[in-house]
Design a protein around this nucleic acid. Sequence first.
DNA 1: GCCTGTGAACCTTTTCACAGCA
DNA 2: TGCTGTGAAAAGGTTCACAGGC
Lengths: 266, 266
Amino acid sequence: MHERRYDRAGTCVPRLPAQAPGPRPTTPRRARSAAISEARRIPEATVARLPLYYRALLEMTDQALSTVSSEQLAELAGVNAAKVRKDLSHLGSYGTRGVGYAVAALVDEIARELGLTHDSPVAIVGLGNLGHALANYHGFGARGFRIVALVDADASKVGERVGELTIEGIDDLDALVADREVAIGVIATPAAAAQEVADRLVAAGVGSILNFAPAVVTVPSGVSLRKVDLATELQILSFYQQHRMPAALGADAPGLRDPRPRAGVT
Amino acid sequence: MHERRYDRAGTCVPRLPAQAPGPRPTTPRRARSAAISEARRIPEATVARLPLYYRALLEMTDQALSTVSSEQLAELAGVNAAKVRKDLSHLGSYGTRGVGYAVAALVDEIARELGLTHDSPVAIVGLGNLGHALANYHGFGARGFRIVALVDADASKVGERVGELTIEGIDDLDALVADREVAIGVIATPAAAAQEVADRLVAAGVGSILNFAPAVVTVPSGVSLRKVDLATELQILSFYQQHRMPAALGADAPGLRDPRPRAGVT
DNA sequence: GCCTGTGAACCTTTTCACAGCA
DNA sequence: TGCTGTGAAAAGGTTCACAGGC
């Protein structure tokens, strides 16, 4: 009764190498993998770092720097040089041996890969403290995204103005998603409402959801889902704080751009 | 000049298996790893899931359920059963074969591992939109954490009341961290200020930092750091939206507690 | 019969190390 | 000489499948 049905999809982003149905009784479960190919598949871990590189490169552009080495970019992005090279190699060759990467070309390429060359319409559902903050947060709406709708179930909030938008009722969700071609739904409701909101967003045609509610939300296979859980983050920190990590080991941070030798406190 | 110095620590949480200094020229770089042992090391990935289990188990407690199978817990937490069993096995044996796990005992054990048996004092630095939202966000301060200070560099904000606290000036940071034994610092400042705030928090003795600013921040080895970057999350979603993932593959979500067959929309 | 605990297989990600090109 | 691009090795994480206890 529970033979297949791997979850996962409900946890992050649609997972490519998921199991083909038909689990084999013993070890030899493979059989697919050949034809998936799709030549330029970019690993999930790399995708998650592209935004970091993108931000770092934009800073360089502002400073009118035209080329950058993997080492420099690594420092700005807070990763290591080997990773930068491997990651960028997945995009194709935008570097020149002995020189580095052309900043402008790389910015363009990453923007294209991330789909930032056009704005994606975003709807925020739930306008409590967090929803308000997200709606106003400059830089959340920036660069490749445009908040086009604010939705709340609370009738007393409907009509309220937030920034340039007016809060609308949840009953208008369907129409509004369709009209404004909302691509990404942000859930900032209480936990109890999160799943239902997700269902409605998906039903209305939204293809990606960012969930801030402290609840597990699941979506059908075609839909992307990511979550940001503040309490969880604190708890993870708490774990490491308590288990005062082995002390030794745990390499030092790279040092970023400023010559700060090692950051205060000795 | 850059032989060792792996960054990483600046990116997430203190990383155990980081390189021992003294990188060997060729392959045989090992030499440590033996004595690290520490018998009950819990893998990073498992630590990141403990909060999920914890939340799910608390819900079960509310419903007066006394035992839970890995399968049930998996569904509530949005992961799969094998992972649940593996994860919990790292905590020791809290399950009974043929029966399941004792909810109460498990809650206690996870709370202890995560250090939630006592409240950790939290300071929020930067009270713009996001900082305000975090300060008010119920559930952010809940369960194992207590916000004990709000700090902002803007003199015009100092003295303003937010919930039960009053915003204090950044010059008081040192004293206030020491007095109230702040363990976790939350950075909700503009990107440009993030590194300096982190430095000051560390210098004042804070051991863990949660960074919301869209900037790379680095900290010395002993300090834990996690980041939450809203723009990054959107960009990752944008990538998957654009590359309309292979469609096939990508297993369905588990279905959560309600019998919703597959979530609306078919 | 049922469900945990776990070795082993598998897959992904990271890191190393160096060939190859400007 | 300097830095990218990349095979290969290592580490980490996930999933399978089943032994073993209730």
